[in-house]
Computed example of a mutant assay.
Amino acid sequence: MYNGRTGEQIDMIYWIDGQYIADALQEVNHFMRDWRNGQVAPIDTRTIDIATAAHNLMDVSEPYTLISGYRSPQTNAMLRSNSSGVAKNSLHLQGQAADLRLSSRSVSQMAQAAAACRAGGVGRYSGSNFVHMDCGAVRSWGS
């Protein structure tokens, strides 16, 4: 995965033989931090699993570009003040959501792969060219 905001890249195995690797998850937490203020929070492994499963379904070698992972309350409030599309109680606040992009796949293709996982929320943001994936209730929105 490539962090489009910080320029960092992460490519790792975070799960082996039915066990998550603690050190790898710490790296994921740091990688998916709130890039605006550097705050780090635990990223829900279900969100990582959904993004990984969707990536595998699309059979791509290109890493995701991370647009947004964890968001601090301050960042979420700032984004809400600038956009009507930011939820007050966004799952980004709990480290349970990721906004992702692939240059080799359309928003529609990415959203279809994420929805096929039947494991969380999938939002299509075609105008901004990214897909929101979260581990909340199964639902979808956007176009």
Results as ranks from 00 to 15, higher is better:
61 S>Q: 12
114 A>K: 02
15 W>L: 10
137 A>C: 08
17 D>T: 11
114 A>Y: 01
135 C>F: 07
40 V>R: 06
10 I>V: 14
43 I>E: 03
10 I>Y: 11
136 G>N: 12
122 V>S: 01
122 V>P: 00
117 C>V: 02
32 M>T: 15
31 F>M: 10
6 T>Q: 00
92 H>Q: 08
14 Y>N: 00
58 M>Y: 06
30 H>A: 09
88 K>Y: 11
5 R>S: 11
131 V>H: 01
74 Q>H: 09
137 A>D: 08
39 Q>T: 13
22 A>G: 08
13 I>P: 03
25 L>H: 10
37 N>E: 03
112 Q>K: 09
108 S>H: 07
104 S>G: 07
54 A>M: 05
61 S>T: 15
30 H>D: 14
11 D>Q: 13
109 Q>T: 04
60 V>I: 12
48 I>D: 05
107 V>E: 00
6 T>A: 00
28 V>R: 06
140 S>Q: 11
75 T>W: 03
84 S>K: 13
97 A>S: 13
134 D>Y: 08
67 I>D: 09
105 R>W: 00
130 F>T: 02
81 S>T: 13
117 C>Q: 13
71 R>K: 03
26 Q>D: 14
49 D>G: 10
83 S>H: 13
13 I>L: 08
10 I>T: 13
99 D>G: 12
130 F>C: 01
94 Q>L: 12
125 Y>P: 01
48 I>C: 06
91 L>R: 14
67 I>V: 15
14 Y>M: 01
98 A>D: 08
23 D>E: 15
5 R>V: 12
126 S>V: 07
22 A>C: 14
89 N>P: 05
61 S>I: 09
108 S>Q: 15
110 M>C: 10
125 Y>W: 05
20 Y>G: 04
37 N>P: 00
68 S>I: 01
22 A>K: 09
87 A>W: 01
46 R>D: 08
138 V>E: 09
61 S>H: 15
74 Q>G: 06
90 S>L: 01
45 T>I: 12
77 A>K: 11
49 D>T: 13
9 Q>E: 07
117 C>L: 02
26 Q>C: 13
116 A>H: 07
24 A>V: 03
142 G>V: 02
67 I>M: 13
128 S>I: 00
69 G>Y: 05
130 F>I: 05
138 V>W: 06
22 A>Q: 15
60 V>L: 06
131 V>M: 02
15 W>N: 04
50 I>H: 09
120 G>H: 07
123 G>L: 02
96 Q>I: 03
